[in-house]
Simulated scan of single mutants.
Amino acid sequence: MAETIISQANRAKQWDAEFFKEYVRANRFKRYMGTSTNDIIQVKNNLTKKKGDAITIPLVGALDADSGYNDGSTNLVGNEKALPNDGHRIQIGVVRDATVVNVEEEQASPFDVRNAGRDALKTLAMRYLRNDIIAALGSVNGIPWADATAAQRNTWNAANSDRVLYGADIGNFNATVSTALGNITAEQTLNKAMVSKLKRIAQNAVTVNGDGIRPYVYGEDEETFVLFVGTGPYRDLKLDLAQEHADARERGRNNPLFTGTTSLYWDGVVIREIPEILGLGGVGGEGAQVSPIYLCGAQALGVAWAMTTKTTTRKEDDYGFRHGVGFMELRGIEKIQWRQGESDAKDWGVVSGFVAAASDE
């Protein structure tokens, strides 16, 4: 009797699919990712079944309601309303890395080598995805904040003046980003009033014949925004909300005041701690430390995959002594913009904030 033996290729393929699912799940942004236009981070997998190096996410603005409707007294023919539309193109690129195990540490089998590096590669891929999402949130017209020139930052700042907040006061805004950051004083740390102000900015932001930045909708008609913040601003807000949590919530494991939870909630806004969102340094008034924060609505970011994560093995093995295992994927992550590539491009679903971060004392 001959028993069926599953080939190594089939085992590797099964492992690849599980690897992709696990590393995305481990990312703190995962709960905000989905394929719907309602999701904060919209995922597009179209290119996994097609050829191409980019994918365009269609953007459709709201029809103008201010001009009124046709009451039947005039012809509708010739008076139709144009549907505002645009598209954001996400460029796809290669993401890959690898590790090597020698024969003294692992059996000389491709499948065993893949399993040996599995946890390390899963964590590394997760970190790359997380870091790219953070970089996209802080990008200036597609350019990472750290790489953008002062002129490029100022151009982005001017176009997005209706969806940016420097410190606690809208009056801190200045056409020159460095000046606006310098207007942030050390006491302008993140607090509940600032969270509410960010929400109002999102609701009042100039959109194409619309009603502000579109929030994430859950349940029947509940709306919310998500505010991603670093450790310093999160700590400051938690302290500011301490009395509210003490007065309005039960004392126990479900109260953020007594736990190390990574989420807070205020005025219809979920505040999510992302420790890897780093500060900008002492660019505030009198050297105050400043950190960026990002209030996001629907379709704030776009993630496009042309090839989901697959494992790879090293061909050069030094006569069977060394065995390398790696991963590779084709994807792109960008902040969605209306009029992408133009000088007046607007961030589609993000309100950017900059706040002082209190010292650790």
Rank of each mutant, 00 (worst) to 15 (best):
N255A: 00
A248S: 14
V229R: 02
L227V: 03
A242Y: 05
V229K: 01
A242T: 03
K238D: 11
G260L: 03
R214E: 12
P215H: 07
Q203L: 10
L241A: 12
N191P: 11
K197E: 11
E250S: 10
V217E: 12
F225H: 11
P233G: 09
R251T: 10
I213F: 04
A248N: 14
S196Y: 14
T224Q: 13
N191M: 11
P256A: 15
S196M: 12
P233K: 06
A242L: 05
L241V: 10
V206W: 05
E223R: 09
R235F: 10
L239N: 15
Y216M: 13
D247T: 10
L257H: 07
G230Q: 05
T259Q: 11
N204C: 01
R251D: 08
R251F: 06
E220K: 15
F225A: 12
P233Y: 00
Y216F: 10
D236E: 03
T224N: 05
P256H: 12
V226L: 08
D221V: 04
A193Q: 12
G219E: 09
N191L: 07
V195S: 05
I201T: 03
N255F: 01
N209W: 01
V217H: 10
L198W: 03
A205N: 06
T259V: 06
D236M: 04
I213Q: 08
R253F: 10
R235D: 15
V195W: 03
T231W: 00
L257F: 08
M194H: 11
A248K: 14
L227K: 09
V226I: 14
R251V: 06
V206E: 13
D221H: 08
Y218S: 15
D221L: 05
Q243I: 02
V206I: 10
L237C: 05
F228E: 02
R200M: 09
L198R: 09
Q203I: 08
L257V: 04
P233W: 00
E244L: 06
D247N: 12
A248R: 11
G260Q: 10
V226S: 14
G219K: 07
Q203R: 15
G210M: 05
G232I: 07
